[in-house]
Amino acid sequence: MSNKLFSYNILDTPIHRLSGLTKLIGFLLLTFAVMFSYDIRVILAITLFSFYVLKMAQIKYSQIRIMVIYVAVFILINMVLTYLFSPEEGVKIYGTRHELVRIFGRYTITLEQILYQVTKALKYVSVIPLGIIFLLTTNPSEFASSLNRVGVNYKAAYAVSLTLRYFPDIQREYIDISLAQQARGLDLSHKAKLVDRFKNALVIIIPLIFSTMDRIESISNAMDLRGFGKYKTRTWYNSKKLAKEDFIAILISFLIFLLSIFVSIFINKSRFYNPFI
């Protein structure tokens, strides 16, 4: 179908072969590394790394186009707002002031502000590919079994996999209902007033809720009838043992994480890298 926002795709790449657990741990470690550091050199390195992994996983631009657009818009808005609300943030952080242009009033462009905002934007840019890789290369039920193995209750873990299993169904149903209601005259475009748009959304959501509840009833019956919840534990058809590659991948992520902390503590002596002093 043409309208899937994201979906697991089956390929045989080194990234796909890693266990879901490995990818989860790697994703978390790298995210922490990026979140912790404000050193543009570290972040740039991680960005390059994550794009390299993206390429290794053979993810095509067409698969993630919509997501990329959303993210780009989000980052753009974020940058504009950051500047509008605190144009002097960079100066405050780095303690120096290299003014380039004065626009008006307190709005000037300084090297410090540029560095700060570029660093911040790069943080998003470096993490997003990792998230995409995780979503697109992990078999959801294998991921559920990994969660279960690190101690998450299997019912909760299975809920994750069920959500992913039925998400496309519900998405399709939403589109069908929305089209049928538009035919009755529903206006979902931006021309309608905000209050009307909210009211109109209900016309789609109410039928969606009712038909989803029907679906939930039949799924939960099907699961009960096949013994879900019989014991405190269960086994998994799709469980992968951690292989050598998994340990290597986790090790690499952990080293990157350590590196980021190390640079902050011993080289920069703060979370920020300051080239201005």
Partner: peptide, 16 residues
């Protein structure tokens, strides 16, 4: 409930 045919058929066994 499974994401593949094999997994779905195995569901009862997993719970057992």
């Amino acid at each position: 409930v499974g994401l593949t045919v094999g997994e779905d058929m195995a569901f009862t066994l997993e719970n057992d």
